[in-house]
Design a protein around this nucleic acid. Structure first.
Length: 278
DNA sequence: CTCATGACCTGACGGC
DNA sequence: TGCCGTCAGGTCATGA
């Protein structure tokens, strides 16, 4: 479910709510997450510790505690955090709970169970060789990201250009919604062979990626059905989507007369306009 | 290395 | 009402 803007929204909320808070206990409920998380390991990582910071790398959240321990969290498709008052009963799919020293409870809920939580130590390895993080490309909103980077990654790749954006080892954090949105903004056909897109167009695409991500972050992310930040708010970017989920609608750039198409690329729904995206 | 495909899960929704 | 198929924002393993 969550891509970079949604994860960033969650990060900001958790940072605000948890920084400086001490964890007094943890509960891991059986059969919750698919990658098993040992309660003892989680306790060793967080119990009695304060949250120093909450950061993000691509779609991963990182909660830092005292003494170099940290928790790497991926929300999968449906993972979410919520804060509850002490005593409030646990809901369906609340798999992990952190008891906070100030009486509250932080909960991790995940119906589809694609999310994962991994205790780790700083510094985290980003080469993908060891530790919980796979190999990740640069942050799309950092100076390390550029059209040149995309073009370099696309050389010798005959796959659709959309798949370059979704490849987390090329650039970290773009998912299915923002890939379609950025390609629309850049006027680029998502089905184009990656190695046949010019450097100039990759520069346009990189700029579009940054623009759409910045706007989505400012709007608190996109809620399609059920994304909620830890303070329960829905993302406000949904109303600003141009193409995602809009098959059959008029193209916002060419309207009226041409409609948004849906195609499957790499097994995932892709939305675009055949007239203005080439 | 590259690439496409299916697996992993539950839930929502539309058609009948 | 229920049953069935399809779809869903992500990643990973597998084999060609």
């Amino acid at each position: 479910m969550p891509e970079l803007p949604e994860v960033e929204t969650v990060r900001a909320a958790l940072a605000r709510q948890l920084t400086g808070v001490r964890i007094s206990g943890v509960l891991v409920h059986e059969g919750g997450l698919r990658r098993p998380l040992a309660q003892a390991a989680l306790a060793a990582c967080c119990c009695g510790r304060r949250v120093l910071a909450v950061s993000r790398r691509g779609k991963y959240l990182i909660l830092d505690f005292d003494r170099g321990d940290c928790l790497v969290v991926h929300l999968g498709m449906t993972g979410s955090f919520s804060l509850a008052a002490a005593g409030q009963p646990r809901g369906r799919h609340d798999h992990v709970e952190w008891l906070l020293a100030d009486q509250g409870i932080l909960r991790f809920n995940d119906p589809r169970r694609f999310g994962c939580i991994t205790p780790a130590r700083r510094p985290l390895d980003e080469s993908g060789r060891l530790g919980p993080l796979p190999r990740l490309g640069p942050e799309p909103l950092s100076p390390g990201f550029s059209g040149k980077l995309l073009a370099g990654a696309a050389r010798h790749r005959r796959t659709a250009v959309k798949n370059i954006l979704l490849d987390q080892s090329v650039v970290a954090g773009i998912g299915n919604i923002y890939a379609s949105e950025a390609l629309f903004m850049a006027g680029l056909d998502p089905r184009r062979r990656a190695d046949r897109v010019s450097l100039r167009l990759y520069e346009k695409l990189a700029a579009a990626v940054q623009k759409v991500l910045r706007e989505a972050i400012a709007a608190g992310g996109t809620t399609i059905s059920d994304f909620r930040s830890p303070d329960g708010l829905a993302g406000r970017f949904s109303v600003r989507l141009n193409v995602y989920g809009k098959a059959g609608d008029d193209c916002p750039r060419c309207a009226p007369g041409t409609s948004i198409r849906r195609a499957v690329i790499g097994g995932r729904s892709t939305f675009f306009c055949r007239r203005c995206q080439r």
